[in-house]
Design a binder for these strands. Structure first.
Lengths: 297, 297
DNA sequence: AGAACATGATGCCAGAAAGGTATCATCTTA
DNA sequence: TAAGATGATACCTTTCTGGCATCATGTTCT
């Protein structure tokens, strides 16, 4: 097999059509260059240059080989660069898992920011619930997650990316909807409830149970996705506790009411990543996208 | 710069994920392979493989570089082959000059035959008169010509590729057109003549002068292209001597008449090439396309 | 025509580079 | 804890590559 030096030598001679000048361009002397070309021709098995003792010209095979040689050299030069960019995390692919609906806002911010800071990066999006995200992060099927606590802080790095208020969604025309001002928690004790699944939406379940004194006899549905909840409310099946971002879903027939005496913005969305992720783009993404409220560089 | 051996080494290790097995596959021992990879990583400037003393895995940069390395190797392997095929003349480009109109028939035969025998060849066609063809062949702007004698037989190889009859073209309704059977040469002495240029269509000029006793006072136009001649005849400007292939031009208002006592098929079309052509495809084309009448292989 | 010049090839040598063997360090497995 | 596995290192030998001097031959100028 020929070497890159031989290719460079051939390209130089093919461009100069003169061994001496080509050698000078390559910062070497003419004799080894002559031998380089001879050797190259021997390995290629074809005469590439016509030397008639006075002038040098390319054969037809040489013309063709020149194109391939140039391609090889440019490819060889760009390859390390490409690898370095990947390694620095400014290129490559970033796979992001996100929870439906409630992540849309923060996710948009992330995508815009990445587009701006790491334009060469290739982004893939996967909608999955928190539990699936955790599994996918462990399998390295995704690189980042937008999910709800809790997580194993040994394995995962995380940070609060978004906080929002908890509201109660009631059907239009429901007696509570006529209220002026926030609903008191006690008013919710006796209405039909659409509740989060304690297994598949554990974060919301725990949160609601902690914050509001609900009675489990009133639970008429148990679901895991916010979107499903709001649809059920719109259908008049009951009321539901949802994060403020649900108001952006654009579903008619639902009214969102404040709840009195709740902590400010108790619903947290976390950015989540595997601490030992082997994708260098993760680090770059974390730098590029500081937590909400932090100053951008 | 890295070497092809280093690339091969890296690809082998990346595929085996095991230095020992990769070395075996490359018919070498493990230590130099380890060094090859280290050196490669140094020149690329990035860690490509993760060795944690027990298992080997690719880094993100390694994944990317593996793709480039494979591409480089396959390109490097195919390049000599490509050059050799060009050199053998079974690939590459063949540029053919041809005279308008009268070459159409033989040219079609050549193109069909080349398509069949040298499917990888790329053909470019250039319409030019004989004189231009000769110049273009000398400048190596075309590789083959379809033209009329005479040529410098020192510089050019040639062979008769097509012979045809000489006819006289007369306007429809012309007195001669009422003839039954061939026109005698004497009948043409006193009609207006559209004649070939003695410089730009010297072959036809010489041929006609040799074969037919014409009187130069009757020459009303001097042109170089057969097509122009036939148009002028159709316009009633006079009569003209044309090769039989002109009947295929499909111009209305012209009648083609045989001429009595002419030699059989005096108009010759030659295939022409530069003896020292550097395009190997020329030789292949000459082999592929024997003179008319010769047996095809 | 002949001398000076230009140009690519060849012979020879020194330094660099690559591969092989032996061995080490460390991690896994029984 | 001992044996085995695996990649890295040390050291040596062989091969390769580049440089210098020189040759062979074709061009140009006087």
């Amino acid at each position: 097999m020929f070497s890159f030096d031989q290719l460079r030598g051939f390209v130089a001679v093919a461009e100069e059509l003169h061994f001496g000048r080509a050698a000078e361009r390559l910062s070497m002397t003419q004799p080894p260059l002559s031998r380089q070309i001879q050797k190259l021709e021997r390995t290629v098995g074809v005469q590439l240059l016509e030397r008639d003792r006075r002038r040098v010209s390319l054969t037809a095979a040489g013309e063709a080989f020149l194109i391939e040689a140039r391609r090889l050299l440019t490819l060889a030069e760009s390859a390390p660069d490409h690898a370095r960019r990947i390694s620095a995390g400014s290129s490559g692919t970033l796979r992001i898992g996100f929870t439906a609906a409630s992540s849309y806002g923060p996710l948009g911010g992330l995508l815009n920011r990445l587009e701006e800071v790491l334009p060469e990066i290739n982004i893939e999006l996967f909608e999955m619930v928190t539990r699936e995200q955790v599994a996918a992060l462990l399998n390295e099927e995704v690189d980042l997650g937008l999910a709800r606590p809790p997580f194993d802080t040994e394995l995962f790095g995380s940070r609060v990316q978004h906080r929002e208020r908890m509201l109660v969604a009631v059907p239009e025309g429901h007696p509570l909807a006529r209220h002026a001002g926030p609903v008191a928690a006690e008013e919710l004790v006796d209405v039909p409830l659409i509740m989060h699944s304690p297994t598949r939406a554990r974060y919301f379940y725990d949160l609601v149970v902690r914050l509001v004194p609900i009675s489990h006899q009133n639970v008429v549905h148990t679901v895991s996705q916010v979107l499903t909840m709001v649809w059920l409310v719109a259908a008049g099946r009951g009321v539901a506790f949802v994060p403020r971002s649900a108001t952006g879903l654009g579903i008619d027939g639902v009214v969102y009411l404040e709840i009195a005496d709740l902590p400010e913005d108790p619903v947290e969305l976390h950015l989540l990543w595997l601490r030992e992720s082997r994708n260098p783009a993760v680090r770059r993404a974390l730098e590029a996208w500081p937590p909400e409220g932090a100053a951008l560089p």
